[in-house]
Design a protein around this nucleic acid. Structure first.
Length: 154
DNA sequence: GCCAACGTTGGC
DNA sequence: GCCAACGTTGGC
């Protein structure tokens, strides 16, 4: 099993929104970055655990956990001209963008804030705290996952 | 709202 | 294939 961190702007879609969806499940669409796309298409697999990270908001940090319940498949929003995520250069034959479905697992009592993550001496490799950490889908090592999870649920 | 750090686009 | 210009991300 692998571990990931998915970013979202809670004003648009938060961990609470995920928890209140039917089946507590939601397609994670709208990812329009190639590196992130490659992870979704090729690496994210059923049962993987995902930190849900809230960005661009008051409480920036990891808000909870979800799990992958459907592996990478074409993101239909890319074909919809009405969608913000429409990509005229994509085609049904050669879809450019992918998504996975995630299901709510738990919400942390308190957001594990970015500043506290940065203060953790062992957390130095995750893209979050490195230069260029703007990736919206990033891998988390098992060690990092355990440490972050313990810090969040302490 | 600012702005630094990225990624993407497109002219050449 | 280079690289300047532009758009976006995301912390603060």
């Amino acid at each position: 099993m692998a571990y990931w961190l998915f970013k979202t702007e809670p004003d648009a879609f938060s961990i609470d929104d995920l928890a209140s969806r039917p089946n507590q499940t939601e397609p994670w669409d709208g990812v329009r970055n190639y590196q992130a796309r490659n992870f979704l298409r090729d690496k994210v697999t059923m049962g993987d655990k995902v930190f849900i990270y809230h960005s661009s908001c008051k409480k920036v940090g990891i808000a909870g956990v979800a799990e992958v319940v459907r592996e990478g498949y074409p993101d239909s929003t890319q074909f919809n001209p009405e969608s913000n995520y429409y990509d005229p250069k994509s085609s049904l034959d050669m879809p450019r963008w992918y998504r996975v479905d995630v299901k709510f697992v738990e919400k942390f009592k308190d957001v594990l804030t970015l500043s506290s993550i940065k203060a953790m001496p062992d957390i130095t490799e995750i893209a979050l705290v490195k230069k260029g950490g703007r990736l919206s889908i990033m891998p988390v090592t098992e060690t990092e996952w355990q440490r972050l999870y313990m810090a969040a649920t302490r």
